[in-house]
Design a protein around this nucleic acid. Structure first.
Lengths: 312, 312
DNA sequence: TTGTAGGCGTTATCAT
DNA sequence: ATGATAACGCCTACAA
């Protein structure tokens, strides 16, 4: 039933017509079993509903579609246990490759080693993973965090709070380092009581806002490692009468579209998600076809976007 | 290799251990081919990045996961052509069932009839589809549109614009009917020049705003069939000096989280997306296990949420 | 140009 | 309690 060119075009057309008439569908299962290829890419992401991730997925789908690959999307919900299960599921579904952004909880790596053992090509994006040899598609989180913090300092801010996430995750480490480096460069003493770790969900932003309001000396700026926490924190502060950016300037990270609509609008970092999805997929497809390519880390463009939450 | 109880527990454990050691994975492809079941649900939605849809998907995943089903998510991007291709893909992947919200462009139904021919169970949600016999999980779009429009009328508005979408799609038809019915009940003459049809994307909202500003008699309210168009329209109007809600009151539809953050915040309709995803999946799984159930339409709860864009 | 056999990995069934 | 075999549907390779 394959569209084999050795058969006369006429015969083929005839068969195609008859097949359609009978409602025939090639059984992809059998076909894949036979060919040992599925032309399917598995994607594991923490959430699909975040702007950043759904846009990465859009980029993945675009390139996959162009190359006649299918995409299976799975959500780990930032839980290690689900990530393990999904890995097993994808491997046993014989996906040709995996694109993944590891969960916040991921601090053990047997499930990733399975992927390596199976020789299934894998590409990580956004959150760097060095547990197994693989390509990593990232932005320069350190540089952007440095830039964001320096921007606050150059606006005259001195007591700058930083919201960080799980230490398992490279991006939060790097953003924290960038923050510290900027303080250091401008001779501002690092104050550990100004660094707040959380899971950076909207609820966390509210809690952090209340903690900040209880500080003896109110800070004059916040650099948050994501937008959702920044926005909910901003709202909570405003409800307590804090003027943004006059009293406290705020910069987030990820450039959620939401941030353009808040009042004030939120300064943030554009991570180029569409591009990230495309490059990740191109890299993976290349690796599927050339199993012996060396792994490397690719840094994509990114940029600080200034809006009203940090400009007076 | 199945975990067969007829084999001694001891032997099974031994095999399990050895399998793990060797990094063995059951080949789901072969297993599914053999059993003629995939325990996989295919989902086709217009977009995954809209709050409404990604939340429906979260509901789908939750119930699927509980019942040990996998979920394949596909985006039609509201394009008929992609929807057709994805239907073929899912059918030939032998999914056990399909959950779908048809695309805006869908005005022919051969691809859906294929699903029927294959006897693959299917459930539609949000956008009603009567082209083939199937369960439809919906909210009462007519009633909520009526309520939204009446709310505007009772606030003293008389020239009420309506933004509608493709006439292929039941929800836009029903919302339009609800709008008209409310006008009718309150003896307001229906004015066809106040009904604007578009694809309701953010860009459309801006265009519509400019068209409204050029009307001889500026309207005093807008009821939009979705939030994205409402929000971008509101912004464009504000940039032209229109005061919301004083000059023009606005109500959207879908309750995008964005709407809670705009200024003013946007009145909208909560469609209960999580519940919708759960019920759709329960219905589908029930249908997979009981192939001869009758199809029906289920109406879920929904509610008008009043915010500052329509309250003075 | 067309026909046919074998095997992909699993599992149900039959035989030992 | 275990071992052997056939079949799921497709596709490659070889034969006719």
């Amino acid at each position: 039933m394959a569209n084999n060119p050795r058969v006369t075009k006429k015969t083929r057309d005839l068969i195609q017509a008859k097949a359609k008439e009978l409602g025939y569908f090639r059984n992809t299962l059998a076909s894949n079993l036979r060919s040992q290829k599925t032309r399917t890419i598995g994607v594991i992401v923490p959430h699909i509903s975040r702007y950043f991730l759904s846009t990465v997925i859009a980029g993945i789908e675009e390139v996959a579609f162009e190359n006649d690959y299918r995409v299976i999307i799975c959500q780990s919900l930032d839980q290690l246990e689900r990530e393990k299960q999904l890995t097993d599921t994808l491997l046993s579904s014989q996906v040709d490759g995996i694109i993944m952004s590891i969960s916040m909880e991921t601090n053990q790596y047997e499930h990733l080693e399975k992927i390596e053992t199976q020789k299934t090509p894998i590409v990580f994006f956004d959150r760097k993973c060095e547990a197994i040899p693989a390509n990593n598609i990232l932005i320069d989180d350190f540089a952007r965090a440095f830039e964001a913090t320096e921007h606050l300092i150059l606006s005259g801010r001195k007591r700058i709070v930083h919201f960080t996430g799980s230490e398992n995750v490279s991006i939060y480490q790097d953003r924290l380092k960038g923050y510290k480096e900027a303080l250091h460069k401008h001779n501002i003493t690092e104050d550990p009581t100004l660094i707040y770790k959380s899971s950076l969900k909207p609820a966390d932003g509210k809690i952090l806002a209340r903690q900040i309001l209880e500080l003896k000396e109110i800070p004059d700026a916040i650099f948050s490692a994501n937008d959702l926490a920044a926005i909910s924190c901003m709202q909570e502060l405003q409800e307590s009468g804090v003027k943004i950016p006059h009293d406290i300037a705020i910069v987030g990270f990820s450039n959620e579209p939401l941030g353009a609509y808040t009042s004030p609008s939120l300064s943030s970092v554009n991570q180029n998600p569409l591009e990230m999805g495309k490059i990740a997929t191109q890299t993976l497809l290349h690796q599927i076809e050339n199993p012996d390519v060396v792994q490397e880390t690719k840094l994509l463009d990114s940029s600080l976007i200034l809006r009203n939450s940090s400009i007076i």
